[in-house]
C-alpha cells in the first residue's frame, strides 16, 4: 500500500472521529494538535486507522511523528514489516 493510500485512510479516520474538520483540506504537514484535536481523539484516530489497515502493532509504536505525512510514512513502514 502506498503512503498516499495510507494518508487517505488516515484522513478518513480523522473525519470519522472529528467530523467538524470536514471542510479542512488535509496536508502532509498538518499536525493534529495544531488542528485542535484532543489527546483522546488522537488515540481514537490511531486505533481506527490501524483497524482499517488491519495492522496489529502496539499503539505506543505509533508515537513520535510530528505531522500527518510522517505518521503515514511510519504506518507504511510498519505495514511492510508486519
Amino acid at each position: 500500500m502506498s503512503a498516499q493510500q495510507i494518508f487517505d485512510y488516515l484522513t478518513s479516520s480523522i473525519l470519522d472521529v472529528v467530523p467538524e474538520l470536514n471542510e479542512h483540506e488535509f496536508r502532509k504537514n498538518d499536525s493534529l494538535v495544531n488542528l485542535g484535536v484532543g489527546s483522546m481523539e488522537r488515540a481514537d484516530i490511531i486505533i481506527m486507522v490501524l483497524e482499517k489497515l488491519r495492522l496489529k502493532i502496539p499503539l505506543a509504536e505509533t508515537y513520535g511523528p510530528n505531522n500527518l505525512g510522517e505518521l503515514a510514512d511510519l504506518l507504511q513502514s510498519k505495514s511492510q514489516i508486519s
Binding site: 488515540a43 499503539l59 505506543a60 505509533t62 508515537y63
Partner: peptide, 24 residues
C-alpha cells in the same frame, strides 16, 4: 518512557505516549 519522576518534587513525561501505552 511515558511518565516518570526523575527529579525530586517534580514529574516529567509525555501524556500522549502514556495514553497509548495505557490503552495497549
Amino acid at each position: 518512557m511515558d511518565t516518570c519522576r526523575p527529579l525530586a518534587d517534580s514529574e516529567a513525561g509525555n501524556a500522549d505516549l502514556s495514553l497509548l501505552s495505557y490503552l495497549d
